[in-house]
Simulated assay, not measured.
Amino acid sequence: MKQLIDFIPLLLFLIVYKTDPRMVDLAGHSFELGGIFSATKVLIASSVIVYGLLFLKQRKLEKGQWLTLIACLVFGSLTLAFHSETFLKWKAPVVNWLFALAFAGSHFIGKQLLIKRMMGHALTLPDPIWAKLNVAWVVFFLFCGAANLFVAFTYEQFWVDFKVFGSLAMTLLFLVAQGIYLSRHLHDSDRTTPKTED
Rank of each mutant, 00 (worst) to 15 (best):
T79M: 07
I5L: 12
T19R: 03
V24N: 03
V24F: 04
F55D: 12
R191M: 00
L149E: 05
T171W: 07
L69F: 13
V50G: 13
V135G: 06
L11K: 10
L186V: 01
M1N: 11
G110K: 10
M23T: 08
K2D: 15
L149Y: 03
T196Q: 03
S38W: 01
I8D: 10
L78I: 10
K41E: 12
Y51Q: 12
K60H: 15
K116T: 08
L67D: 13
S46C: 10
F143N: 12
W130C: 00
I36K: 00
L10R: 01
Q157V: 04
L125K: 01
R117I: 08
E32Y: 02
K195P: 00
R117H: 11
G34C: 03
T196P: 01
P21N: 04
G28R: 02
L113K: 06
L149D: 04
E85G: 09
G76V: 04
F99V: 14
V135E: 06
Y17R: 02
F158L: 05
D161Q: 08
P126C: 02
K89L: 05
G110P: 12
F140D: 03
I70L: 15
K111W: 11
I115D: 09
M118L: 14
H107E: 14
D190N: 04
A92G: 12
V151E: 00
M119H: 13
I180Y: 02
Q3H: 12
T193L: 00
W66M: 14
I15E: 09
L14D: 05
K163R: 07
G35A: 08
L26Q: 03
L172F: 06
G52I: 06
E85S: 05
S167I: 03
M23P: 03
R22C: 07
F141K: 05
F82A: 12
V151L: 00
P126D: 07
V151D: 00
K195F: 02
F82D: 13
L88V: 07
F143G: 07
T193Y: 00
L14H: 04
L33K: 01
T19V: 08
E197K: 06
